[in-house]
Amino acid sequence: MKVKNLLESTDFYLISDNSGIKNEVNGIYSCDLLSHVMGFASEKNILITVLNNINVLGVASLLDLSCVIFSHKIQVNEAIIIKSNELNIPLIGTKLTTSETVISLYNLGVPN
């Protein structure tokens, strides 16, 4: 499964440009504490967070995550969007809560 497959659902919209939408997806990790993300997320995971912060992308890049989903309709600032395009790590938005996002991804067939 690829990031672009997630965008086939009406739950999700692309915040960044098309860079990285062909990234492979192999699981879900959800947390707003970056040390937990560093310790527990795996390569090619989707990160779900409400943390509207450039350090999210630093961690996503170090771990080779597939994309970042901002739940709760979080408004992401421009600096983060520019950085995500540079790093080929797509940013996806959703109005769903974090738990609803996990369920929606599971229903799309994302392994967990």
């Binding site: 970056l34 040390s35 937990h36 310790g39 943390l51 912060n53 350090n55």
Partner: peptide
Amino acid sequence: ENGFGAGMG
């Protein structure tokens, strides 16, 4: 506020 300080470092 920046996502750190979980005491896990």
